[in-house]
C-alpha cells in the first residue's frame, strides 16, 4: 500500500517540477526573444517591469489570465476548445525523456525510455494537429488558410527531420536519449562531417517544425493576419504561445542532445552545459527569425523536397557506409 502512494507522490512532484520548469522557461524565452529582437533592432526592449523588464512576461501572463475568454460565433466548438491543449500537451509530454543531466548522481530524466527518440518524433508531430484544429475550428478564412498551410508544411518537414535524427541514432546505436548522450562522451557528433550536415538539416527542419521565420507560414503575420490563432485571445492564446516557445525549447534540446553531446561537457555541471547548449540554439533560432524574410508556401515545399530530403537521404546512406566500413 505504501509503495504505490509513494510512487504517486514522487510522480506528482516530478510532474510539478517539469511543469514549473516549462512555464518559467517559456516566460524566460519570451522575455529573451523580446530582448534579442530589440537589440538586433538597436532598441532596448522591455525595460520597465523588473530589472531590464525581466518580469514583463509575468505581467503579460497575468494580463492574459485575466482577459475575457471570447468564443466567436460559428466556431466548431470541439476543435476550437481542444486545439490549444493539442498545441501544449504533446510538447509537455516530450519532457518525459529529455535528459537534463544529473545532480549529485541523480539523473534528471523522468524516464529514460528505450524508444525515446521514437516517442519524441511521434509526439512532436501531434502539435500540428492542434494548429490544424485551430485553423479549422475558428470559422475564419485566414485561420483556415493557416491551418492548411501548417498541414502541408509538416508533411514535407517531418521526413528530413526524422532522417537527420536517424543519422544520430545510427551513430549512437540506441534509441534511448541517455545512451545517445553517452555515445558522445568522447567527441560530439556535430564534429563529424556528415553529422554536421545532419545537424544543419535538423536545425532547418526544426525551425519549420516550430513554425518560426523563415518558415512561419501558418502564422504569416503580413499575409494571414495571425494565421491559425487569429481568433484566439486570452488564456487560449497564451496556451498557443506557451506551446510555441516550449516547442522551440524542445527542438533545441533535441538538437543539443543528438548532436552537441547533450549534458556532457568539461568543468561545468551537466545541467548547466545542457541549458547553455539548448538556450544557445534557441538564441540562434531567434537570430534567424529576426533577420530573414519568410519563404512562400510552395517554395518551402520545393526546398523541403528538392534539397532537404535528398540531401538527408544521401547523408544517411553515407553514414551507413561509414558505419559498415
Amino acid at each position: 500500500m505504501i509503495i504505490p502512494v509513494l510512487t504517486l507522490i514522487i510522480m506528482l512532484i516530478v510532474g510539478a517540477v517539469v511543469l514549473g520548469f516549462i512555464a518559467v522557461s517559456a516566460m524566460f524565452l519570451i522575455w529573451w526573444e523580446r530582448k534579442v529582437s530589440a537589440h538586433i533592432q538597436t532598441r532596448y526592449g522591455p525595460m520597465r517591469v523588473g530589472w531590464h523588464g525581466a518580469l514583463q512576461s509575468v505581467a503579460d501572463v497575468i494580463k492574459l489570465l485575466l482577459k475575457e475568454n471570447i468564443t466567436p460565433s460559428g466556431v466548431d466548438r470541439l476543435s476550437w476548445w481542444l486545439a490549444p491543449f493539442f498545441a501544449v500537451v504533446p510538447v509537455v509530454m516530450v519532457f518525459v525523456c529529455i535528459p537534463f543531466g544529473n545532480i549529485f548522481g541523480i539523473e534528471l530524466i523522468a524516464r529514460d525510455l528505450n524508444i525515446g527518440i521514437l516517442y519524441i518524433m511521434a509526439l512532436t508531430s501531434i502539435c500540428v494537429l492542434g494548429i490544424f484544429m485551430a485553423g479549422w475550428g475558428s470559422n475564419n478564412k485566414y485561420s483556415l488558410l493557416g491551418g492548411m498551410r501548417s498541414a502541408a508544411q509538416i508533411v514535407s518537414y517531418e521526413i528530413p527531420l526524422v532522417l537527420a535524427m536517424v543519422t544520430a541514432v545510427m551513430f549512437a546505436g540506441s534509441l534511448s536519449m541517455q545512451k545517445i548522450v553517452e555515445a558522445q562522451k568522447g567527441l560530439w557528433f556535430v564534429f563529424q562531417p556528415n553529422m554536421a550536415i545532419a545537424f544543419a538539416i535538423f536545425i532547418i527542419a526544426g525551425t519549420a517544425e516550430v513554425n518560426r521565420t523563415p518558415f512561419d507560414i501558418p502564422e504569416a503575420e503580413s499575409e494571414l493576419v495571425a494565421g491559425f490563432h487569429t481568433e484566439y485571445s486570452g488564456m487560449k492564446f497564451a496556451m498557443f504561445f506557451l506551446g510555441e516557445y516550449t516547442n522551440m525549447f524542445v527542438i533545441s534540446a533535441l538538437a543539443a542532445t543528438l548532436f552537441l553531446g547533450g549534458w556532457s561537457g568539461p568543468f561545468l555541471p551537466p545541467v548547466i552545459w545542457f541549458l547553455i547548449k539548448t538556450y544557445g540554439l534557441v538564441t540562434f533560432m531567434m537570430w534567424i527569425r529576426w533577420t530573414l524574410p519568410r519563404v512562400r508556401v510552395d517554395q518551402l515545399m520545393g526546398f523541403a523536397w528538392k534539397v532537404l530530403t535528398p540531401v538527408s537521404f544521401a547523408n544517411l546512406i553515407v553514414a551507413g557506409w561509414i558505419l559498415m566500413k
Binding site: S37, I40, Q41, T42, R43, T213, S222, W290, P293, R294
Partner: peptide
C-alpha cells in the same frame, strides 16, 4: 516592403533609424 515579405521589423527599424 521587406516587412511584408516577412522579415519581421528588423529592416524596418534599420530604415527608420
Amino acid at each position: 516592403f521587406v516587412q511584408d515579405l516577412g522579415a519581421f521589423a528588423t529592416p524596418l527599424f534599420y530604415g527608420m533609424r
